[in-house]
Design a protein around this nucleic acid. Structure first.
Length: 431
RNA sequence: GGAGGAAUACCCAAGUCUGGCUGAAGGGAUCGGUCUUGAAAACCGACAGGGCGUGCAAGCGUCGCGGGGGUUCGAAUCCCUCUUCCUCCGCCA
């Protein structure tokens, strides 16, 4: 959320930076007018309240002294109605202002490339060798079918389309990757492991930036409490410290969390319908940081490096993309995407996204810190990154490590977890 | 699911029945001081924090006793509602 005071003081500059996103934000002009009226109302209202408090105090005093109170009671009659009226107008204004601010995205960081959409993103580097095959590489769904490690038909029977069942070494591969990633980040990169609720409430959705704007993207439960299936680990983990004032000495806080994410994907009908690239339910290891503002961009770089390490150790080719202003996520000031090379697509596909939200989520979720005991509370910066998307890592391994006979070699780093170095077709397989 | 109980500042805790001099007694912790070679003890002093508004600032006002709403001139105190926690019963991995 943007700070209304900053918007008031720096209107031109903020509008200029917002416009880099390529959308229309003229509605913010109205917010300034509403804010003027709001402040005027607060002054009038508080003056009346001050008067009322004073008179009430006097009434108490008179009563104790046994004096007559009817005259003084009379004098406050008009006050009462006026207070109610002003209070009503004020809360309506506040609600309207808040709604607009909640619908307004974060300011893009000054240094990120300007652009309209993903075509203007900038490739920073390519890492790893793109595998060369002396046969035609197969897409992961074909490989999976022959190996009998993924089952889409039965998943559709049990749930619906865009779900999958992992079987045998397929399931083991997913589980191994989760452990591998968590072990790496907790043991080598200094993150603390979290295992979070998969169900979150509305306040959490608002704080992390999903609501109110992206309500259609999530699964809502019918439970009367207003609960939703977690669309990304960012939601439960950012909310870990909602409405808290953290000790500055405890920053940065670094967390790694395995979660299962659930998404409607309603805007993606027809896209990535085959395989496990885009599912309603998928697993992810997420990295989260709460930092002091001056350190957040350093922490962003190390977080990116931490995510890259996963792919380096798995020896999967990838590239790092810096998102341009027009492709930037709603709540983020700066984002790197990591994309893995997929032979069947003959291109790179996103496998992780590493972002700095600066104070945007902290303001929504009231997440602050104090530099020392007597200091004023300041908003932290929040960062989140994939470390990585597990299902897509499975895809990357299957496709990049496939052999001519359709078997899949397990990356060296993963073998201790897998207990085998290859996934191959079972003998006497009768499916 | 049923029956009870609770939520007050960093912690403990009084106040709630009977609304007003209570933005909140008392204790602990913490910080500062006296004493001491040093420390402890004892004694003295300080000790809501935060949001919002206003102001160059000091300050002033407002809101704030789990959250939200209501009654009232006035609410920690009365009413409604939600949340969380505890005890017991039932069910259950």
């Amino acid at each position: 959320m943007l700070d209304i005071k900053e918007l008031r003081q720096n209107y031109e500059e903020i509008m200029r930076r917002l416009s880099l996103r390529g959308e229309d934000f003229s509605s913010l002009e109205g917010v300034l007018k509403q804010d003027d009226r709001r402040r005027q109302l607060i002054q009038e209202l508080e003056a009346m309240k001050a008067k009322r408090n004073e008179i009430s105090k006097k009434i108490g005093q008179y009563k104790r002294e046994g004096k007559d109170v009817s005259e003084i009671l009379q004098s406050i009659e008009d006050n009462k109605a006026a207070v109610v009226k002003m209070q009503t107008e004020l809360s309506e204004l506040e609600r309207a202002i808040e709604h607009t601010l909640l619908m307004t995205p974060n300011l893009p960081h000054k240094d990120i490339p300007f652009g309209k959409d993903e075509d203007d993103n900038v490739c920073l580097r390519k890492v790893g060798e793109i595998p060369r095959f002396d046969f035609t590489p197969k897409p992961h769904w074909d490989l999976a079918k022959a190996l009998d490690i993924l089952d889409f038909e039965r998943a559709a029977k049990i749930a619906s389309s865009r779900f999958v069942i992992y079987k045998g070494l397929g399931a083991r591969l997913e589980r191994s990757l989760i452990s591998f990633m968590l072990d790496l980040h907790t043991e080598k990169h200094g993150y603390e492991e979290l295992l979070l609720p998969y169900i979150v409430n509305e306040a959490s959705m608002i704080a992390s930036g999903q609501f109110p704007k992206f309500k259609d993207d999530v699964f809502a439960l019918t439970d009367k409490r207003g609960l939703y299936l977690n669309p990304t680990a960012e939601v439960p983990s950012i909310n870990l410290h909602r409405d808290e004032i953290l000790d500055g000495a405890s920053l940065p806080k670094r967390y790694a969390a395995f979660t299962t994410a659930f998404r409607q994907e309603s805007g993606s009908a027809g896209r990535d319908t085959r395989g496990i690239i885009r599912l309603h339910q998928f697993n992810k290891v997420e990295l989260i940081k709460f930092t002091q503002p001056e350190n957040s961009y350093n922490e962003l770089e190390t977080m990116l490096a931490n995510s890259e390490t996963v792919l380096k150790k798995l020896e999967i080719p990838y590239r790092v993309i810096e998102l341009c202003s027009g492709d930037l996520g709603f709540g983020m000031a700066k984002t790197y995407d990591i994309e893995v090379y997929l032979p069947s697509y003959e291109t790179y596909r996103e496998i992780g996204s590493i972002s700095n939200a600066e104070a945007y989520q902290a303001r929504r979720g009231n997440i602050r810190f104090k530099r020392d005991k007597d200091a004023k509370a300041e908003f932290v910066h929040t960062l989140n990154g994939s470390g990585l998307a597990v299902g897509r890592t499975v895809v990357a391994i299957m496709e990049n490590y496939q052999q001519a006979d359709g078997s899949i070699v397990i990356p060296q780093a993963l073998r201790p977890y897998m207990g085998t170095d290859i996934i191959k077709q079972k003998e006497n397989d009768h499916v």
